[in-house]
Every structure is written in C-alpha cells, then in structure tokens.
Deep mutational scan, measured.
Amino acid sequence: IRKQWHEDITQDLRNHLVHKLVQAIFPTPDPAALKDRRMENLVAYARKVEGDMYESANNRAEYYHLLAEKIYKIQKELEEKRRT
C-alpha cells in the first residue's frame, strides 16, 4: 500500500537507513566489507527490517522512530551478549 508520506522518502534515504541498521549490527569502518558475501545476508535482513517499518509506519516521524527503536534494541542486545 502506497502511503502519501512515501512520496517524500527517496531511495537514497532508504538505502542510507538500511546502511545505518547494518552498522548497528556489524560496525565496520571498511566499506569494502559490505561487498563481502557474508554481509549479503546481513544487508538483506536490514532491508527487510527497513521495508517492514516503511510499510507499517503511518508517517515519516513514525518511520524514523521505529528504525531508531530497532537500532537501539539491536545495540542493547549486542552489548548484553558482549558482557556474558
């Protein structure tokens, strides 16, 4: 379902936000690492998460909020795993 606010969101912005999700899960300073085949699954997962939020959000603010919440949860989980 195409929503009115979707018209304001460019593909570049969506790609940028997918990249932010990927960085939250696997922070790497090396952009070449993103071309690694093992990263493809991670990028696919991040695209799916972003797509789900894009579809479920009712406006741009909610879209950003859902993504920020997801990134926060991912970082929290990773922190907890590092501690144990």
Score class of each variant (00 low, 15 high):
V49I: 13
M39T: 07
H6G: 05
H6S: 03
L78A: 15
D8H: 02
D52S: 15
L78T: 13
K48W: 01
P31R: 09
H65Q: 13
L17V: 14
P29D: 14
F26W: 13
I9Y: 00
N41H: 11
Y63D: 02
Y64P: 02
D30E: 10
Y54D: 04
R38I: 06
Q4S: 13
V22C: 03
E80L: 06
R47T: 08
I74F: 13
H6R: 13
R47C: 01
H65R: 12
K76W: 06
K3D: 03
A33C: 09
R37W: 09
G51D: 10
L78R: 15
L34S: 10
I1L: 06
K81D: 10
D12E: 15
L21R: 01
R38V: 07
L34R: 11
R2T: 13
D8G: 12
Y45A: 03
N15M: 06
W5H: 09
L17W: 15
T10A: 03
N15Q: 08
Q75K: 14
A44Q: 10
H19S: 11
V22Y: 02
E80Q: 08
D30Q: 08
L21A: 01
P27F: 03
L78S: 14
A44C: 02
V18S: 05
L78N: 15
R2Y: 03
E50N: 04
Y72S: 15
V49R: 04
T28S: 09
D12P: 01
A44Y: 00
M53Q: 02
L42I: 14
I25Q: 13
S56T: 12
Q4L: 09
A32G: 11
T84Y: 06
R47P: 01
D30W: 07
H6F: 08
R14F: 00
Y63R: 00
E79R: 10
E80S: 06
K70Q: 05
Y63I: 00
E7L: 07
E80K: 01
K76G: 08
K73Y: 07
V22T: 03
Y63L: 00
D12V: 05
Y63G: 00
M39E: 08
R38T: 07
A44D: 10
Q23E: 10
Y45I: 06
H65T: 09
N58R: 07
P29H: 06
M39N: 06
I74T: 12
A46T: 02
H65C: 04
N15S: 04
L21V: 03
K81N: 10
E80W: 03
A32S: 11
L34P: 13
G51I: 11
Y72I: 15
Y72G: 14
D52E: 13
I25R: 03
D8E: 10
K48R: 08
H65Y: 06
L78V: 13
Q75A: 04
T10Y: 03
W5S: 08
K3V: 01
T84W: 06
H6C: 00
Q4F: 01
V43K: 06
L78E: 14
H65S: 12
E50T: 02
